[in-house]
Simulated assay, not measured.
Amino acid sequence: MKKIINSAKAPASIGPYNHSVAVGDLLFVSGQIPFNQATETLVTSGIQDETKQVMENLKFILTDAGFTFEQVVKATIFIRDMNNFSLINEIYGSYFNMETAPARECVQVERLPRDVNVEISVIAHK
């Protein structure tokens, strides 16, 4: 049976989806963009700040679901400009232990919701 888990600290959904869905020992977390729910503003002060906000949004959801970044087994990163990869990777990597970092892919896309520069989704396992 699936369990829906939303976080009041993460940006409210702008469509027919939830922040995360738990099924058994797995947690599927919807893609997060650099929106700061506390200030109700989109972070646009640079790709590193944007990535940090995305990772914090993921952290809010993981925490509310009883998970940590250590339990993330898969990540998907969507970026608008592959030239920002190293800057995104620097911030993204600071949330993981290199020896236990998840599998992932990074894809350049033409456009993301609200015209942001980065969106990340994860899957975690207990």
Rank of each mutant, 00 (worst) to 15 (best):
M1F: 13
M1T: 15
M1E: 15
K3G: 04
I4S: 04
I5Q: 07
A8I: 14
A8E: 15
K9T: 06
K9N: 14
K9S: 14
A10V: 11
A12E: 14
A12T: 15
G15K: 08
P16Q: 10
P16F: 10
P16E: 07
N18M: 03
H19N: 04
H19L: 04
S20W: 02
A22H: 02
V23G: 03
V23A: 10
V23N: 02
G24S: 10
G24R: 03
D25C: 02
D25Y: 08
L26W: 08
F28T: 06
S30H: 13
S30I: 06
G31S: 11
Q32S: 14
I33W: 01
I33S: 12
P34A: 11
Q37Y: 02
A38R: 12
A38D: 15
A38S: 15
T39F: 07
E40I: 08
L42M: 14
L42N: 02
I47D: 01
I47H: 12
D49E: 14
K52W: 08
Q53V: 13
M55V: 06
N57T: 14
K59F: 12
K59A: 15
K59Q: 15
K59M: 13
L62A: 11
L62C: 11
T63G: 01
A65W: 05
G66S: 06
F67I: 14
T68D: 15
F69C: 07
Q71C: 03
V72S: 01
K74D: 11
A75H: 00
A75G: 10
T76E: 10
F78I: 00
R80H: 04
D81P: 01
M82V: 05
N83R: 14
F85G: 00
L87W: 01
I88C: 10
S94D: 07
S94F: 07
Y95W: 09
Y95Q: 11
Y95M: 05
Y95F: 15
F96C: 09
M98A: 04
E99Y: 10
T100K: 12
A101V: 06
P102L: 06
P102Y: 04
A103R: 08
E105N: 10
C106K: 00
V107D: 09
V107A: 06
E110L: 13
P113A: 14
D115K: 14
N117T: 05
V118E: 05
S121V: 01
V122M: 07
A124L: 12
A124Q: 02
H125M: 15
H125Q: 15
K126M: 09
K126P: 04
